[in-house]
Simulated scan of single mutants.
Amino acid sequence: MIDICDYDYAASDMPSAFALQMVTFTRQLRHAQVLCDDKGNALVLETVSNAWTERLARAATVEMGGSALLAFYPMSGRQAKACVVCGTLSLYANLAWSCVKAVCRTAIRSARLLTSSAPPSSSTVA
């Protein structure tokens, strides 16, 4: 069974590997990372810095068709909990659900407005 963790660790939507909170908290500059794609290719990286990880992973991702998954920052659940922003996934889900409900309410109001107003008669049209 895979546990789903309700947290986010990135500083932005497209962070660089060395701009993640994991680096700030763990100070891990050298560790093994695995890059894989949907075709079954896998690449193990052991770099001298996170900047090199970023450079090599981006280049390999392009060669893998532009979509790949990089697994890195090995740590325990306790370590992860100390350096992440907890509750962000559920916050995102709740915000998305609120937006969907608001759009539905607006669509229902618009439909009611359209169906309740009678079309103009030909005598009132100029």
Rank of each mutant, 00 (worst) to 15 (best):
N41S: 11
V85P: 00
M75G: 02
A19D: 15
S90M: 03
L35G: 02
I108S: 07
R112M: 09
Q79H: 02
L56E: 00
L35F: 02
C36F: 08
E46M: 08
S16T: 10
L69V: 15
A60E: 01
L91T: 14
R58W: 02
L69I: 12
A57T: 02
V100F: 14
K39L: 15
I2P: 15
V48D: 09
A68T: 00
L95Q: 15
N50V: 03
M1G: 15
R105Q: 08
A96M: 11
I108E: 09
R30H: 07
V103H: 10
D3Y: 13
A111F: 05
L91V: 07
D38Y: 07
D6C: 05
T24E: 14
A102F: 01
Y9F: 13
T88K: 07
M14R: 11
V48W: 06
R78F: 05
V125M: 11
Y7K: 05
V34P: 10
T124P: 04
L113R: 09
S49M: 00
C36E: 05
M22F: 13
V48G: 10
A71V: 04
N50L: 09
D6L: 03
Q28F: 07
R30M: 11
L43F: 07
R58A: 09
Q79M: 04
S90Y: 00
A71F: 06
N41D: 04
K81Q: 10
A11H: 11
N50G: 03
A118T: 07
T53I: 03
I108R: 09
Q21Y: 13
A32S: 11
V44G: 03
S123M: 10
D6S: 04
D8F: 06
V44T: 10
T115H: 08
T26R: 13
